[in-house]
């Protein structure tokens, strides 16, 4: 926000100048924005506990179905790859949360009639969305951690959990999902009804996370795939960040930056297109 100095004039004109100065100055910072988004999310979760708990329970139930169903069908084969499944499921729930945090929020805000209010924030719509994503990521991390603990408890599997390494790798791994979220969120601004794409994305994310990376280098250029590969490596073999191959880390950071950047840029472009067509407030 721009800053301004209040004049000390007197009378009506002076008062007006003082008020104008106050208006320019503002008192909020980016922290204010972040806190506002976080508080809103927490309030909604607190106010609707059943909805919140159901979401978490569905995560557990879904994994339970995969685990117990898979064990009944595949037996030893599933047990052999259990570590990979747990890491994959953890990453999938995180990526899906990050993707939905952006893409679905655009649709919801549009539906609620609040999208234009967010667009008119002096912080800029992009920053408002990034703050919203940051909150979504925090929520996703909390849910992911709970889901991971549940999975380990149910399966009795032991994974190495170097927390800092897992956290950093997870953030870079899901950054492309955030980029995809921005891209599809941008499409939602223009085309509005894109929920079916969102639904399909759940399966696309599974494919990206489970894509074979050994021996097929180009696959690692796909979003999330490299993150999935490194996260599995770190959690299954207990490797720390500095023990991972630098080239692999560079590829992880590169894909994260590119997919996030391209997705964000597309979101901005599609936002302009929506405003050209007068669609910003439509649903």
């Amino acid at each position: 926000m721009s800053t301004g100095t209040a004049d000390s004039g007197e009378g009506v004109t002076g008062d007006r100048r003082t008020r104008a100065g106050e208006r320019e100055r503002g008192t909020g910072s980016l922290r204010t924005l972040l806190w506002a988004q976080l508080k809103k999310r927490l309030l909604l979760m607190y106010r609707y506990p059943l909805n919140t708990l159901t979401g978490l329970a569905m995560n557990f139930v879904f994994f339970g179905m995969i685990f117990f169903g898979g064990r009944a069908v595949a037996g030893q084969a599933l047990t052999d790859s259990l570590g990979g499944i747990i890491v994959g499921y953890f990453l999938w729930s995180m990526a899906l949360g990050a993707f939905s945090g952006v893409a679905r929020s655009v649709t919801k805000e549009s539906e609620w009639g609040t999208l234009e209010q967010l667009y008119m924030s002096p912080f800029g719509y992009g920053r408002v969305m990034v703050a919203s994503v940051a909150v979504a990521l925090l929520e996703t991390l909390a849910w992911g951690a709970a889901t991971l603990a549940f999975m380990l408890a149910v399966t009795g599997e032991a994974l190495h959990l170097p927390v800092a390494t897992v956290l950093v790798l997870t953030l870079f791994a899901i950054a492309p999902a955030v980029g995809l979220g921005f891209f599809f969120g941008g499409l939602a601004l223009v085309y509005k009804r894109v929920e079916n794409i969102f639904n399909v994305m759940q399966f696309v994310l599974v494919g990206l996370i489970a894509a074979p990376t050994v021996g097929v280098v180009w696959v690692r250029l796909l979003p999330i795939t490299q993150g999935s590969y490194l996260l599995t490596l770190a959690m299954a073999e207990g490797l720390r960040l500095w023990e991972l191959p630098p080239a692999d880390l560079a590829l992880l950071v590169g894909t994260a930056v590119v997919y996030f950047g391209v997705g964000y840029a597309a979101f901005q472009r599609l936002g302009v297109r929506a405003r050209r067509q007068g669609l910003m407030g439509h649903y």
Partner: peptide
């Protein structure tokens, strides 16, 4: 789904003003 005051605080904050 927010209260009246929570709405005011939220919109003040995204408007760049500390609630």
């Amino acid at each position: 789904r927010l209260t009246v005051r929570e709405n005011l605080e939220y919109f003040a904050a995204i408007g760049g003003e500390s609630p």
